[in-house]
Nucleic acid binder design. Structure first.
Length: 439
RNA sequence: GUGGCCAUAGCUCAAUGGCAGAGCGUCUGACUGUGGAUCAGAAGGUUGCGGGUUCGACACCCGUUGGCCACCCCA
């Protein structure tokens, strides 16, 4: 062998070592649980999609970030999936026999060639839940309710799901009379209202070459406080598209009230914008106030997307939870329950010497049969070393069967946290250990 | 994609341009039935990588890769 290869992972991607994986599995398990409780069912799709499946759906800016993954000698142009939404619409178009409304969730990695940063990776997991085949605002309300339930279950306290409607944004654009190709700049400036204030937005709009008279109208409009439907209706009432959007949000508000989602956890924010091109109706985005890490969830209604793959379009709404950011916030705020340890092993069964390998193996298997995660020490090289190993791995208990215990048909259970030891008859081993381990 | 900060032992960090160090961790022993305490000792480095300046570079210059931060955008 010549010079060694530097062990590295691709930029923006990472290994997830066991301790991290235990935390992730906890979070993903909770999320999956809630998804199922709302009647969503699992779906899996390939990591690679045909390039043509992905292109033309997200907008130019987003599509620059799509990874190509064509094989050297392959005949198909392939790309790594950019999100889970477009694959879903592809599935819906391919299997028209799926019973509607089709409610599916998918928890899987997606890839985006962005410049990495904290809370932003090139390979990351998304947790999506969508309802295909219902145009009712009740579907949107279910999505927002579920977002609330997930975050609340994970222990989040101060978070707000902001809700707006693409139709209102379109209305704002019409009201301002800005040409279509400038709408992007307009929306982007509006989106920054909270971050940079009205003056900042004014500056931003001027930079985007939006006429001065329009800018003033915009600032006025966008400065309408959240939840103030009346004021907005007064201004945009002449525009059918805006009226329609407002009507939808009012219905949504009623349904959220029915669902008892706490008023503090959602807000109708007419300045909230989402970048993806395919949204057509209500849009949502959840932010936490404590560590500023961007949005934890994002989603909305995209009634026309399925239509790009099929002769008929199907109304669809859904959300994507940013599991990576949720995990980052939970790390920062130490939100994991004590029950997720650093290891899955509950008991290390030590091996006193070669002659007692059999006794320890039988004990380990008895524990395993009783549903206890038991690890058998693999080298009989001294009790001290084995206990040190247990401590290093944060295994909470060690079982010791030395000559004395073996002769008396007993075993010693040592609590590595307190140092307390109990002598247990081998006949009652599993039950006695179970009691100790669970407490 | 644009701009800035950073990269030295497994980890956290030192070292006026002049012999690359400390703390923690790791390993061994004091302790042949007990880890986390104490003591003694040991291992561990091409200073991210490639060039350049210099008698001499961890330090200065250029490039490159990666991490972080602010934009852009977004989960």
């Amino acid at each position: 062998m010549g010079t060694k290869i530097q062990p590295r992972v691709p930029r923006g991607m990472r290994d997830l070592l066991p301790q991290k994986m235990l935390q992730r599995q906890y979070v993903i398990g909770k999320v999956e649980n809630i998804f199922q409780r709302f009647g969503f069912e699992p779906l899996q799709t390939p990591a690679l999609e045909l390039r043509e499946t992905l292109m033309g759906k997200y907008g130019d800016d987003a599509e620059k970030l799509i990874y190509d993954a064509k094989h050297r000698e392959g005949k198909e142009d392939l790309s790594l999936r950019y999100d889970l939404t477009v694959p879903l619409t592809r599935v819906v178009a391919m299997y028209p026999e799926l019973v509607k409304p089709f409610k599916r969730y998918q928890i899987a990695p997606v890839w985006r060639a962005e410049r990495p940063q904290k809370g932003r990776y090139r390979e990351f997991y998304q947790c999506d839940a969508d309802i295909v085949g219902s145009k009712s605002m009740l579907a949107d309300a279910e999505i927002v309710t579920m977002i609330y339930t997930v975050l609340q279950t994970l222990g989040f306290k101060s978070f707000v799901t902001k809700i707006n409607n693409r139709k209102i944004l379109t209305g704002i654009g019409q009201y301002a009379g800005v040409p279509n190709e400038m709408l992007g700049g307009l929306y982007r400036a509006i989106d920054k209202l909270e971050k940079i204030g009205a003056d900042g937005v004014r500056e931003e709009m001027t930079k985007s070459a939006i006429p001065a008279n329009v800018v003033d109208k915009m600032i006025d409009l966008v400065s309408i406080p959240p939840d103030n439907f009346g004021e907005l209706r007064e201004r945009l009432g002449d525009l059918p598209i805006a009226t329609e959007g407002l009507g939808e949000l009012e219905q949504l508000a009623t349904f959220l009230g029915d669902a008892n989602v706490p008023r503090a956890n959602y807000q109708f924010d007419f300045a909230m914008v989402r970048g993806l091109a395919y949204y057509t109706g209500p849009i949502y985005e959840t932010v936490v106030t404590e560590p500023k890490i961007g949005s934890l969830t994002g989603g909305g209604r995209y009634d026309e997307l399925v239509g790009l793959f099929s002769s008929q379009s199907i109304p669809t709404t859904g959300t994507s939870l940013g599991i990576e950011r949720i995990i980052d916030v939970m790390d920062e705020l130490a939100m994991y329950p004590a029950s997720i340890g650093k290891t899955v092993t509950q008991v290390l069964v030590t091996v006193f010497n070669r002659d007692l390998i059999g006794a320890s193996t039988r004990a380990a298997n008895a524990l395993r049969a009783a549903g206890i995660n038991a690890e058998l020490a693999l080298d009989a090289e001294g009790l001290g070393k084995q206990l040190k190993y247990a401590a290093a791995k944060a295994i909470p208990f060690a079982l010791i069967i030395g000559p004395d215990e073996a002769a008396a048909q007993k075993a010693t259970l040592r609590d590595l946290t307190s140092g307390e030891q109990t002598l247990i008859p081998q006949s009652e081993l599993a039950d006695a250990v179970k009691l100790k381990v669970k407490s």
